[in-house]
């Protein structure tokens, strides 16, 4: 089997029992601000007390584009979008949908898949979003 790396185990959990994967944000204990990906200090109040908070994994597409000219080494077309999560976080991710399905405001949910190969040629697995069925 092809070797895999997870981006990033700190904030993406893929349960071994086959349950749904989920995202984990980091919440500042002092001011409540959430971060994804992880930061080392709260950029709002500079507290170092950040604790894990699992997220619902649902979101709405704020904007998107279908990239026909990709980065070197990636396949086109590639749809990426900003997804706004109900926890007031915005995440850029690949979206697993046909171009004609894509709409601003559409409901999506988190899934996982390969986003690229890493520098060593390993399959890099990360969060993606797909339309809510």
């Amino acid at each position: 089997m092809e070797e895999q790396v997870i981006y990033h185990p700190d904030f993406l959990v893929i349960p071994e029992g086959g349950e749904k994967p989920y995202l984990v944000a980091y919440r500042c204990e002092k001011c409540g601000k959430l971060y994804l990906p992880k930061v080392n200090i709260c950029l709002n109040c500079f507290s170092e007390d950040l604790v894990k908070q699992p997220l619902s994994g649902k979101g709405k597409v704020y904007s998107y584009t279908i990239q026909y000219t990709p980065q070197p080494g990636l396949k086109a077309p590639l749809t990426v979008g900003y997804v706004d999560l109900p926890e007031d976080l915005r995440v850029l991710a690949q979206i697993m949908a046909e171009p004609e399905q894509m709409k601003i405001g559409m409901d999506v949910e988190v899934t996982v898949g390969e986003i690229r190969k890493d520098a060593d040629g390993k399959s890099m697995i990360s969060y993606k979003f797909k339309p809510v069925e």
Binding site: V80, A93, Q94
Partner: peptide
């Protein structure tokens, strides 16, 4: 890392 390009960012 998730594949966004600069044309992609401005396209959004």
């Amino acid at each position: 890392l998730h594949g966004m390009t600069m044309p992609g960012l401005y396209a959004m």
